[in-house]
Amino acid sequence: MRGQISLDLLFAVMLVSLTVIGLVGWGMNQAGETTTMGKAAQLKVLAVDVRDSVAKVYASGPGFTVIKELPFQLKTGEWVNITLYKNQTLLVRAELGGKEYRVVERLQVPVGVTSSVLLLPGNETFQITAVRLNTGGVGVVVET
């Protein structure tokens, strides 16, 4: 009798585990793509935020600084690289969760010089500062 019961139980366990494995597999499939999408959205928001901040800092004039913090936590091995280019473009590159992301935004103001900042885990704040250029104009730089 005992043997019989355990056989029934075995069948039941098998059926339940098959269902669970199927559901977990399907769920993981959906989750992977959604995570990538979420990270991409966060980077886009960051890029747009930096772009707008650069315009504000430029308008405020030399000496004005805005301190920014990454809107998300970096894990070990992840990094975010923000670069302002002389030709009025902003590039945000990042490696999050083993995938590399890249966003480019057109800046609304001329920044004058190329500057770059690399954000690593535990070092997630950066500054956007307006400076006086050698040519006499106003420039904007990013720095840690």
């Binding site: 999408m37 991409a40 959205a41 980077l43 886009k44 995938k99 590399e100 992301y101």
Partner: peptide, 13 residues
Amino acid sequence: DACTFLNEGVVVN
């Protein structure tokens, strides 16, 4: 998902 990525405008390598 394809449309979401195209609308987000973020390159994923």
